[in-house]
Simulated scan of single mutants.
Amino acid sequence: MYTETYQNLHRQQKALEVLETLLAEEFAELRERKPESITAIEFSIHELMRQIANERTALKNTMGGQRLADVLQILADEEQAELNGLLKRIDALEKRCSRQASMNAELALALHDQSQSLLSHLQNQIQPRNHATYGKTGAYTQSRPEAVLIHGRL
């Protein structure tokens, strides 16, 4: 029981270390605005998250649905200390990954908002203006500000 639990937690710790590295790399790519490499990193992050979830499910199944804290009570003091140390490192890694993911999401949303406002500005600039002018009958002409490909009457 101890060996399987230790190996599973160790794999989770190493996976979270890789996740932290990938998130830092994603942040760097976001800052440099390289969408192609960000997409590749995102796929890697999603696959790694799937593997971590599978590890946690396997650990839960190994313990027969019991909580890890309850299982730790059965083990020897040395084994408990070692597993508690692993759990503390995993917890610290999860918190750092969470903070980095929040920063990545915030930067991605800021870049999206900036791109969206730039696109709206460009669309407003190329859209024809509504100029109120007199027509041949002496009244204001009605113009259509939207672009039209075909203009005709029935």
Rank of each mutant, 00 (worst) to 15 (best):
K14P: 00
R33K: 11
L149W: 05
Q123S: 13
T21C: 11
A81H: 03
Q116V: 10
D91M: 01
E20N: 10
L109H: 10
E26T: 03
S120H: 06
K88N: 11
T141H: 07
E106N: 14
A105Q: 10
D77W: 05
R31H: 07
R56F: 03
E79T: 06
G138R: 02
R89G: 03
G85V: 06
L119I: 12
T3N: 10
K88L: 13
I45A: 02
R96N: 12
Q116R: 15
T39Y: 10
I38E: 01
E32G: 08
L83K: 04
L16S: 00
L59N: 03
E82W: 03
N54T: 08
A15V: 02
I45L: 04
Y140A: 14
T3S: 12
L16C: 02
E20Q: 08
Y140S: 12
Q12Y: 02
I74L: 14
V148W: 04
R67M: 05
R153Q: 11
T57S: 08
A69H: 07
Q7R: 05
E47P: 03
E42I: 11
L68E: 01
N54A: 15
A110K: 08
R144H: 05
E94T: 08
A110D: 12
I38S: 02
A147D: 08
K60V: 00
N8E: 09
G135I: 09
F43I: 10
A28R: 08
A147M: 13
P145N: 15
I150Y: 03
I74F: 08
A139E: 08
E26Q: 13
L30I: 04
L48M: 12
Q13L: 10
Q12A: 03
N124C: 02
R67V: 01
E82L: 13
L9T: 00
S98D: 10
R99M: 11
G65A: 06
L59E: 03
A40L: 14
E32S: 15
A81Q: 06
S120E: 08
G65T: 03
R96Y: 00
E55M: 07
G65C: 09
E17C: 03
A139C: 05
T3V: 10
N8W: 05
Q66C: 09
S98A: 14
N104S: 05
L122I: 15
G64W: 09
K60G: 00
V148K: 13
L86I: 11
T3R: 14
G85L: 06
M63P: 01
S37G: 05
T137D: 14
E78P: 01
E106K: 15
Q127T: 14
E32K: 10
L75K: 00
A69C: 10
R96L: 14
L93G: 04
G65K: 00
P35T: 04
A101K: 01
H131F: 09
A147N: 11
E42M: 15
G135Q: 13
L30M: 01
H131A: 15
G135P: 07
R129M: 04
K34G: 13
L154R: 05
N84G: 09
I150R: 07
A105T: 11
L68W: 02
E36I: 10
L48C: 07
S117C: 07
Q51I: 04
K60E: 02
H131Q: 12
M103C: 09
Y2L: 02
N84W: 00
A108N: 06
H112M: 15
K136C: 13
E55L: 15
M1I: 05
I41H: 06
G85D: 03
F43H: 12
Q73F: 05
E26S: 02
C97Y: 02
A24F: 02
H131C: 09
